[in-house]
């Protein structure tokens, strides 16, 4: 009997807790949680979302919680679930490898807005939105400039695993380079890892040894390849975050992700009671993708012109990208 009542109490308490979740009062701001695979200050993928949320912090009176460095997918899943349980209004699962878990978790928390990326898949769930970066756009712009800059006609690209955002960027880069310089040979090396800095450095050196005089690459292990470019004085194009810090003399430009463009929509939707079901993307056109140049780099005007032309062409639609 006593046991029974205890159980009832527990249930009552649980319902009370979940009730308080269902009635969020956004007037006092929102609670936002980020789950991301690498460090918050990785100058790459994770930093892009953390910076974006911090940009909106005051405007939306956000209370932000971050669980970073969660490369173990099931740990990320546990974090997603516990944030939802704790009543966070928006849970951002920042990693395409988290989708499988989110698909299973989101239906258990119909009153929480989940958003994840980079992806376009909302699993048909009303409380899941997806965001992605049209990183092939910036990739194309960078490629166009690289094609115009190269003297050896060899360009090197270092990628992690051929998936998602990395694949998109690299594909765009290759297309841009080819479009601006038909003779250019673009060597792409996916090293098979998001974390192996030493291998990424040696891949960079292999490109340089093969004559590459312009390089690019994507994902967090790319710092190794930038180091190789730095010691050989080879030009570098960055993506995901402004990578000028990694090589003040060699970084030409970076494609920077301004996720705040889509996060605004997602937060506004959440306030209005629309928790998901939609896809968002950042593009050159909507200002979510910005090409930030390194002022210190003596960029050849012709290359700069090729880049500007590519930006303009993508925005006005005269350049069609394959994805």
């Amino acid at each position: 009997m006593k046991k029974m009542s205890l159980k009832k109490l527990a249930i009552a308490a649980a319902t009370a807790a979940s009730l308080s979740v269902t009635a969020p009062s956004y007037a006092d701001g929102m609670k936002v949680a980020i789950i991301a695979p690498s460090a918050s200050n990785d100058l790459a993928f994770t930093q892009s979302i953390v910076d974006a949320v911090n940009t909106l912090k005051d405007e939306y009176k956000l209370e932000v919680a971050i669980t970073d460095g969660t490369f173990i997918v099931d740990d990320a899943a546990a974090a997603i679930r516990s944030y939802a349980k704790e009543g966070y209004d928006v849970v951002i699962a920042h990693g395409s490898q988290y989708g499988g878990s989110l698909k299973e978790i989101a239906p258990d928390f119909p009153d929480t807005a989940f958003t994840w990326g980079t992806s376009a898949d909302t699993f048909g769930l009303p409380n899941v939105s997806a965001y992605e970066a049209k990183s092939n756009q910036g990739g194309y712009v960078m490629g166009a400039m690289a094609g115009a800059m190269t003297k050896s006609n060899v360009i090197g690209v270092v990628g992690p695993i051929e998936v998602g955002d990395a694949k998109l960027y690299v594909d765009g880069f290759v297309d841009g380079a080819k479009a601006n310089n038909a003779d250019a040979q673009v060597n792409v090396n996916y090293i098979g890892s998001f974390g192996d800095v030493a291998l990424s450095a040696e891949a960079g050196k292999a490109h340089i040894a093969n004559g590459a005089d312009v390089m690019s690459g994507t994902a967090q292990m790319v710092v190794g390849a930038v180091g190789a470019a730095r010691s050989a004085d080879v030009a570098w194009f960055g993506t995901q975050a402004n990578q000028t810090k990694l090589g003040k003399k060699i970084v030409v430009a970076s494609q920077v992700y301004k996720w705040e463009v889509v996060l605004r929509t997602i937060f506004d939707n959440a306030k209005a009671g629309k928790l998901g079901g939609d896809q968002h993307e950042i593009t050159l056109e909507n200002g979510g993708l910005v090409i930030e140049f390194n002022d210190k780099y003596p960029l050849d005007p012709a290359a700069r012109a090729a880049g500007d032309a590519a930006i303009a062409g993508i925005i006005d639609g005269s350049i069609k990208l394959s994805h």
């Binding site: 800095v197 190794g224 930038v226």
Partner: peptide, 17 residues
């Protein structure tokens, strides 16, 4: 030698070397 060759440090830099 590894860190200075790479010019960078990251978590688990050696990757089981």
């Amino acid at each position: 030698a590894l860190a200075i060759e790479l010019g960078i440090f990251q978590q688990n830099l050696t990757n089981a070397m």
